[in-house]
Amino acid sequence: MRKLREVKNVVVSLIVFVLLWQILFITSDFNENLFPSPYMALQALVETVTKGVLFTNILTSLYRFLIGYLASIIVAVALGLVLGQLPGVFQYINPVVQLIRPISPTAWMPFIVLLFGIGDVPAIVIIFIAAFFPVLLSTVTAVRNINPVYLKVSQNFAISQPELTWKVILPAAFPQIASGIHLALGSAWIFLVAGEMVGAQSGLGYQIIDARNNIRADILLATIIVIGVIGIILDGLIKVIERRILAAWGGQV
């Protein structure tokens, strides 16, 4: 019954959105090549699908996303697990982290393109940067907030490094690390598009630039919607993975 109501909410929400779009299309006096109707966007979507462009671009983007995001998580969690246990070292690293963290990853773009050229690498690097800091900081905080009784028990049962880190600290900190990883997914996906708009000749971000260059606002809007839908799917996937791990580790789901 609740599932049904949720589906109903989604359907109603989408219908209202499309209706508003259609009304705006009818009432505004923009050129229809610049502001297309929902139906025109749908036709453009079908066009990109049948030409095979969309599918290739999605795969390219997802490939870059997965590499950048996974690499970022692995490095950030590993570094966070170490730094969280070395507060003396982290207090010297933290000021630099706080300095770099608020800089939009896109600000690095010209620099990255100059160093790595155009292609997969700039997009991957930008995703890496976008996901890195939230995951690093949530891991450090999570490690520091571990219930001290787990550490006392580990000490008592003579659990030493590296077992201490992967047997006790990682699972104890995991719920909080997972929320950092989850948060980072959103910003990584956002910056993927930005990265591909500047530093690539393929992918969904490039498809947007390409549509603009050809004044195909219908393809542009269709691409934007596809990016949004994939974002939702990725978010759902990570929720499932998160829940699986928590359940395997005895968490209350």
Binding site: V149, Y150, K152, V153, N156, V168, P171, A172, F174, W249, G250, G251
Partner: peptide, 11 residues
């Protein structure tokens, strides 16, 4: 040592 809050590892 046995602790008041058990000190079991929940995972």
């Amino acid at each position: 040592t046995i602790f008041q809050n058990y000190g079991l590892l929940p995972w």
